[in-house]
Each structure stands twice: as structure tokens, then as C-alpha cells.
């Protein structure tokens, strides 16, 4: 257990050291600011699409550090060292999911408050968005780490990562954005999708990392 905590602490420290939360928040807000420019300053329209904009921005923010999540550890021999110590790559992947969530989930939830102001969203909508993000961002973290593990070792991994992850994130987007209007039922569906992703991701990511070892 102490090993897993050490792994999580290391990943969180590295994420923060390399720009981490600041970068995620800045990127998230930038996307949220770009939409009003593209759609126009109609407050009613913005308020209607705002929730979806925030969810799309959160998805892109989760994808932002995808090249730094797993590949550097493979290159530096860290995964080799963990494997020699008898750690399963599944455990390592699970630790990476927790660490990635810690370094992007809470910052995005904070930044969503500012984004809600920019998009003229009501307090009730903001509350629904925050609750949705709390449930949904762990699923985004699971997807991002899985994608990072699958594309590690590829050249131009960032672009491929987008192609791999974005289609898989569609259910999260549908139920996440849907939960703003949909009430309790939509939150439960969102939760179900996230549980599915969290249960499967460590095994898929772990298998990809194991395959990259030899």
C-alpha cells in the first residue's frame, strides 16, 4: 500500500512540476473563452450550450498531458524497475489513474466556476455541472491513462492519442452533458459509465504497459 501511495505521490509531484494544474486550468478556460467568440455574445444561447462547452473543455484538459502520463516512465526505465520489484503493471496503472485525476480533476472543477461566469450559467446549472464533473472526471482520467499506455512508444503519440481517446469519451460526454438537465437518472447513468471505465482501465493500461516492457 505504501508503494502505491509513493507511486501516486511521485506522479502528482511530476504533474505539478511540469506545469500541471496551471496548464490544465489555463487550457480549460481558454477553450471556454473560445466558444463565445465562435458562437457570438447571445447570452441565452451561451447559457443553453454552456454546459456542453464545459464538458468538452474538461475532456480536452484531461487529454492535454497524455504524452507525459506513461511514456516517460517507459523511456526512463521506471516501469522496468517496478516490474523487477514484482509490482503488477495493473497496480501501476491504477496508481497513475488516481494521480492523473488528482492533478486535473479538482483544478478543472475549480476552473468550471470561472467558466460558468464567462458563459452566463445559472447557479443551479453550475451545481449540476460540478456534481457531474465530480462523478465524470475519474472516468476521463481512466481513459487518458489507458490511451497514454496504448500509444506509448509511438511517434507523434499525441495525435494518435486524440484519435483513440475521443471516440471512447463519447458516452461520458453524452451522459455528462445530459446530466445537467437530466436529473438523478442521468447522474446514475454517468456513474455507471465511469465505474465501467474505472474497472476496466487498469487492466487494459496494465496489459499495454506489460507489452511495452520487452
Amino acid at each position: 500500500m505504501t508503494v502505491v501511495i509513493a507511486l501516486i505521490a511521485r506522479d502528482v509531484r511530476r504533474a505539478w512540476a511540469s506545469g500541471g494544474a496551471t496548464l490544465v486550468v489555463a487550457f480549460f478556460l481558454l477553450v471556454a473563452i473560445l466558444f463565445p467568440f465562435a458562437i457570438g455574445p447571445d447570452a441565452r444561447l451561451l447559457a443553453r450550450v454552456g454546459g456542453g462547452v464545459i464538458w468538452a473543455a474538461a475532456l480536452l484538459a484531461a487529454l492535454l498531458p497524455v504524452e507525459r502520463l506513461v511514456a516517460p516512465d517507459g523511456d526512463a526505465g521506471v516501469l522496468d524497475q517496478l516490474a523487477v520489484r514484482g509490482l503488477s503493471m495493473t497496480t501501476v496503472a491504477a496508481a497513475k489513474i488516481v494521480a492523473h485525476w488528482l492533478s486535473f480533476g479538482p483544478p478543472v472543477m475549480l476552473a468550471a466556476v470561472a467558466a460558468a461566469g464567462l458563459l452566463d450559467l445559472s447557479g443551479r446549472t453550475l451545481l449540476a455541472i460540478e456534481l457531474g464533473l465530480l462523478i465524470g472526471t475519474p472516468g476521463l482520467a481512466a481513459l487518458a491513462v489507458t490511451t497514454a499506455a496504448l500509444v506509448m512508444g509511438l511517434r507523434g503519440a499525441g495525435a494518435v492519442a486524440g484519435l483513440v481517446m475521443l471516440p471512447l469519451a463519447v458516452p461520458l460526454l453524452i451522459f455528462g452533458a445530459g446530466s445537467i438537465e437530466g436529473g438523478a437518472g442521468a447522474f446514475k447513468l454517468l456513474g455507471a459509465i465511469v465505474l465501467l471505465l474505472l474497472a476496466g482501465a487498469p487492466f487494459v493500461a496494465g496489459a499495454a504497459m506489460r507489452a511495452a516492457l520487452d
Binding site: 511521485r10 526512463a76 526505465g77 524497475q81
Partner: peptide
């Protein structure tokens, strides 16, 4: 195991980078 890759975080002071593995 010692390979070509020393698996020490480049941004950390040497003692802390080694300390991570000692903790593991």
C-alpha cells in the same frame, strides 16, 4: 536491475531520486 536507463527522476536532487526507490 541496472540498465542503460537509470530510472531516476531527472528534476530531483540525487538523494531524493534514490530515496523514491528506497521507499518503494
Amino acid at each position: 536491475l541496472l540498465t542503460e536507463d537509470n530510472a531516476l527522476d531527472p528534476e530531483l536532487p540525487l538523494a531524493r531520486a534514490l530515496g523514491f526507490w528506497a521507499a518503494i
